[in-house]
Design a protein around this nucleic acid. Structure first.
Length: 276
DNA sequence: AAAAGCTCCAACCGCGACTTT
DNA sequence: CAAAGTCGCGGTTGGAGCTTT
């Protein structure tokens, strides 16, 4: 199908952002919010492409960003999440409030890789490097996929009966990483979905795990549930975690009646929160 | 002092996924 | 249903700043 360029490249600035550009971008987003990135540069009077503006805002200008060094706890959490998810930086970032995927990716490549190597652990496989036969944590990509596949199948089979109470994907993860809370509970009966994994772009992000690009999973859990719940219920499995804004979740636009059913619980936050 | 090498991170690029027409 | 438009992700790069020789 061919794609047009995201912007008029001939008349856009590239490279480092100036203070003035930053100010313009901040002022515009404060006034109008994070609307359409494509039209934003023109509206804000910036000679940048929308993509560049988005990146600058998300990775550098957003007010909720946590600057500074990573703590030991953050290090360990990143390592655990990477063992489970592989290079799914946006998902990992969802578990670390105030950190961006780009920042974590850079930190992984510059610090954590080295740290793991010094511990004798292969950063890609999370296995001990000098004993490849002994598998402590098997291949992240493979495991994530197979766990999710299992859960999808479980969901598809168990939700045949409408009184199915729930499926907790986190259960399987807990066998590998018992101290990491990635609880993901789907409860059909009371229309209550409860996710603990967190990501700003949660809908897409979740699908990224549930439906990897080369995966054998033919239908995501979301689709499976949706199919089985055709009884006039609008069910959205997208989840909203880590951020209060609604942009990542279509469920809010579906029906106010269902807004109350989406709850999230971020392991880095103390209490369970309700999406409104 | 300066050249060479290294580290780190902001920014870019290409592509897939999703949405709109 | 297909094409076009948009967004977001992950890999990669460029260059500023730091260290070593």
């Amino acid at each position: 199908m061919g794609r047009s360029p995201c912007c008029e490249k001939a008349h856009t600035n590239k490279g480092a952002w100036t203070k003035e550009e930053d100010q313009r971008l901040i002022a515009h987003i404060k006034a109008h919010g994070e609307g359409c990135w494509r039209s934003l540069p023109k509206a804000a009077g910036l000679l940048r492409c929308g993509k560049s503006c988005r990146l600058r805002w998300i990775n550098y200008l957003r007010p909720d960003l946590k600057r500074g060094n990573f703590s030991e706890e953050e290090d360990e959490l990143i390592i655990k999440l990477h063992a489970m998810l592989g290079n799914k930086w946006s998902l990992i970032a969802g578990q670390l409030p105030g950190r961006t995927d780009n920042e974590i990716k850079n930190y992984w490549n510059t610090h954590i890789k080295r740290k793991l190597v010094s511990r004798g652990i292969d950063p890609q496989t999370h296995r001990r490097m000098n004993n490849t036969e002994h598998c402590e944590v098997s291949s992240p990509q493979h495991d994530t996929k197979s766990v999710v596949l299992d859960e999808t199948r479980k969901l598809q089979s168990t939700d045949q009966s409408s009184e199915t109470s729930g499926v907790t994907i986190a259960d399987n993860f807990e066998h590998q990483l018992p101290d990491l809370n990635l609880e993901l509970t789907i409860s059909l009966n009371n229309s209550s979905y409860h996710y603990s994994s967190s990501s700003k772009k949660s809908s897409t992000a979740l699908q990224g795990v549930l439906k990897p690009s080369n995966s054998v999973v033919s239908a995501s859990a979301e689709e499976a549930v949706r199919e089985k719940s055709s009884c006039a219920q609008v069910i959205c499995l997208c989840y909203q975690l880590g951020f209060q804004s609604a942009e990542g979740c279509n469920c809010k636009s579906i029906s106010a009646n269902y807004q109350q059913v989406f709850k999230y619980h971020n392991p880095l936050f103390k209490e369970e929160q309700q999406i409104n």
